[in-house]
Nucleic acid binder design. Structure first.
Ligand SMILES: [Zn+2]
Ligand SMILES: [Zn+2]
Ligand SMILES: [Zn+2]
Ligand SMILES: [Zn+2]
Lengths: 183, 183
DNA sequence: GTCATAAATGTTATGTTATAACATCTATTC
DNA sequence: GAATAGATGTTATAACATAACATTTATGAC
């Protein structure tokens, strides 16, 4: 049967015996409403620790707090939103502090920047160096980060066939997530 | 033979009798150095007139001047750069004027915004409603707008296979243009 | 330990991009 | 020539991001 890889999302030929219901694939990219989101955050923090250890860079207090703040939501967050949350309890951080932490987190593949929104979101498979592809729900603002080989290969091919040597790419798709689409 | 469509850039099977040398395809997307660029601008203005006539919208003086300014270069231009050029000869336009003109031009498919640069560029095939794909040279800042069916289809498929209903997309590729790559 | 160095953070100021809100002008229609 | 919609003018401010330099903190050499 024709199916798709739940990690890459690409359509592939798959023997029937490997069939899995579609819902599981969808939830792999778009979080279920009402899921235990604190688990997403603590999982991300654990991964971040590991990444930083292996890269020999320091996940300092400030950087960790910024990352935790970003992971408070599956929707992307502006730098000044992050700042406001950090300072909600009396701290007096300046914008620079946030931007510097974001630079660090982005450099180390723990956070992505969404250029179409001027906003930041936690990376869902950190460590690997990658420029993700993003599905952005215009209604509920949830963002799914996907990693489609088909997309990156097709984009690379389109570029190179025009004599262009690609070194990075941005793919951001606006639309409706599975939940909002159903309404 | 396997070849590619010089308009869409996609690889296609093409009978040998249709073969054309590659250079012509490359130059279709990336302008030659030293080409008569004033022709690009005047051609774009003529097309813009036609588009506005057929859409029954008005290409006013201000909007035309903004469009002309954008077409002074194949590199994208920031809104405040445009403003500075408009005001270079004593006029006193405010940022709002530029942004409103840009909104109009974008709505009517005459200009694109590059989110990764916060900059604007003239559309090379206006009239058709489309969200182009862009190849951005990190060295000389020239931008090629391409329209690859393969890319848009692959992106759409990756999105829909995840239960997402796409309504718009941004594809921006950073790298080296044919000229800068050669250096 | 302490000294030198590099890394991180603090602090202040400023630069850059974009929009809100309301007033005025101009074209179009009846 | 009034009524209306569309375009522009004007002022102020919001939202996003970086420059420059001072201070603190971690790290390794001695
Ligand atoms: Zn979650
Ligand atoms: Zn949604
Ligand atoms: Zn030209
Ligand atoms: Zn170049």
């Amino acid at each position: 049967m024709l199916c798709y890889n739940i990690y890459s999302g690409d359509t592939i030929a798959l023997p029937m015996r490997f069939f899995m219901p579609r819902a599981s694939a969808v939830s792999a990219d778009f979080p279920q409403r009402g899921h235990d989101h604190s688990a997403c955050g603590s999982h991300a923090l654990l991964e971040a620790e590991a990444v930083c250890r292996s890269r020999q860079v320091k996940l300092t207090d400030l950087r960790r707090k910024v990352l935790e703040t970003i992971w408070e939501d599956h929707a992307p967050m502006g730098a000044y939103d992050i700042l406001a949350k950090l300072n909600a309890e009396g701290e007096r951080n300046a914008p620079m502090a946030v931007y510097r932490a974001l630079d660090f987190l982005i450099e180390n593949g723990l956070v992505h920047r969404l250029s179409s929104l001027n906003a930041y979101i936690g990376c869902r498979h950190p460590g690997r160096s990658h420029s993700g592809q993003f599905l952005i729900c215009s209604q509920c603002n949830i963002v799914a980060e996907i990693t489609s080989e088909a997309v990156s290969k097709t984009v690379a091919r389109a570029a190179t066939s025009r004599g262009f040597k690609p070194s990075g790419e941005i793919v951001e798709v606006m639309g409706l997530c599975p939940h909002c689409r159903g309404n």
